[in-house]
Design a protein around this nucleic acid. Structure first.
Lengths: 242, 242
DNA sequence: CACTTCATATAGCGTTGCTATAGGTGCTAG
DNA sequence: CTAGCACCTATAGCAACGCTATATGAAGTG
């Protein structure tokens, strides 16, 4: 299989690199392999991508687009927390389907090289969590929740990739997923947690309000409405936890 | 700084490799650098370790011994779950102290190369969780709990490593840690079920408030008032629990 | 046509991981 | 003391690597 069709060399290089990376099985992929498969000479690669790293970054970016597209294709479904679950599963599946690409994206993260992807992934999850926060289903700030969930999600995916495909146990994923979502959700507040007694539902309400306010471009509010909101909030904050 | 003392070449190689790996800042470390710093010639490296990968494996093994030693040095303390917390923190600290080594250990995990370390780490945590299980503090099987917690632990550590050291927020670690431990512990079972038994009235109020807010298209709220309002909300929603 | 700009190719530099071969070193046996 | 024998190390060099100095072709503009 070669990419010496009519496609522009830049695209051929991208596809060749992606294919070799996907099938390398962890071994290093050389620029010579890539350029040969793309039916292109070495300087072309460097003209378009500057660097081997640059080419790999482009491949990763393309893979990430695909990943994001997969994440966005879910209907909002009205249950934000359920959407988070699907988002998690989709993340894991993406990692298992393209382990090499995933390892380049999340396995070799270094402060100077590649936190952009992580930031994007976090933003994507935070966006979804915002809906949960607006619905009063969140226990903590959406941003913190997103970072925490994503970190666990990446850890689980890496662990599953590390296992031989035969004995992969996806229960690790679902269990960790539900643990994280549960810990972040407001539901647990009604139970007896180690420290949740102090964290009354006021926090939940405040988080929901905060998220709603920031999501609704509310630089346009009448003062009377503001007073109403404050009154509501006061009633909330003084109501005893049921 | 060179290791050309009286130590055997094997040890010199190990130390040189460890030092170069620690200070490389992510850049590749060449065998020539290592052999030069160790004051040794190339074939010596291959005689002792067979491979560059073999040498790195040895360094990783040594680092892992150190890691395990750190984990074991904690007194059992009678509170297994508290020990798990310290274990988690120790893991994160190890990763932040030796990021390069950590990335080699947990960042490049591949099924064919390096699951042994993961298995050891899991066993270590499972051992500790077993005590919690004996004390009736566990909600799930110790092995599953260990795998789940370790996965989240690795994910969090990788995320923290990926961040510039200046803006590392360890709250991500403590929050995820407590979420995982709480989800695994028996405490949560006493509360409400995982599904909506009944939302507290406060949440309902918050949802109603949210609806009112989003329905409003009025204007003329002074930006200072809005700013104050948001600030106040933010203060509430980020107020620490205890 | 001349001129610029972009894209690709030829050839080769310096470095990499690794090794074929050989030379020392310390041992036990005769 | 010498012979042989493992063991360990060094010299020199190969093939492959990432990358580039330089040159050539194609395409658009005056």
């Amino acid at each position: 299989m070669s990419f010496d069709g009519q496609l522009p060399p830049k695209v051929r290089l991208l596809r060749a690199a992606a294919e070799l990376l996907a099938n390398s099985g962890g071994a290093a992929v050389s620029t010579r392999q890539i350029t040969q498969l793309a039916a292109v000479s070495a300087p072309t690669l460097y003209h378009h991508f500057g660097d081997k790293e640059g080419l790999f970054d482009a491949v990763v970016a393309a893979g990430f687009e695909e990943y994001v597209a997969g994440e966005r294709d879910f209907a909002p479904s009205g249950h934000p927390l359920e959407d988070i679950r699907r988002m998690w599963d989709n993340h894991v599946q993406f990692g298992l389907n393209q382990p090499e690409l995933y390892l380049v994206m999340f396995g070799n993260i270094r402060p100077e090289s590649r936190p952009a992807i992580v930031a994007d992934a976090e933003a994507l999850m935070e966006e979804m969590l915002n809906k949960a926060a607006v619905a009063g289903q969140l226990n903590v700030q959406p941003r913190e929740a997103a970072r925490s969930i994503l970190a666990a999600n990446v850890g689980v995916t890496l662990m599953l990739i590390a296992e031989p495909a035969a004995e992969r146990n996806l229960e690790l994923s679902t269990m960790t997923r539900d643990a994280m979502i549960f810990a972040v959700s407001a539901e647990q507040a009604s139970g007896a947690g180690p420290d949740t007694s102090g964290k009354s539902s006021v926090v939940v309400a405040a988080i929901a309000l905060n998220a709603a306010l920031q999501a609704s471009h509310s630089d346009q509010l009448s003062s009377s409405e503001l007073k109403l909101f404050l009154e509501w909030l006061h009633r909330i904050s003084t109501s005893s936890t049921s």
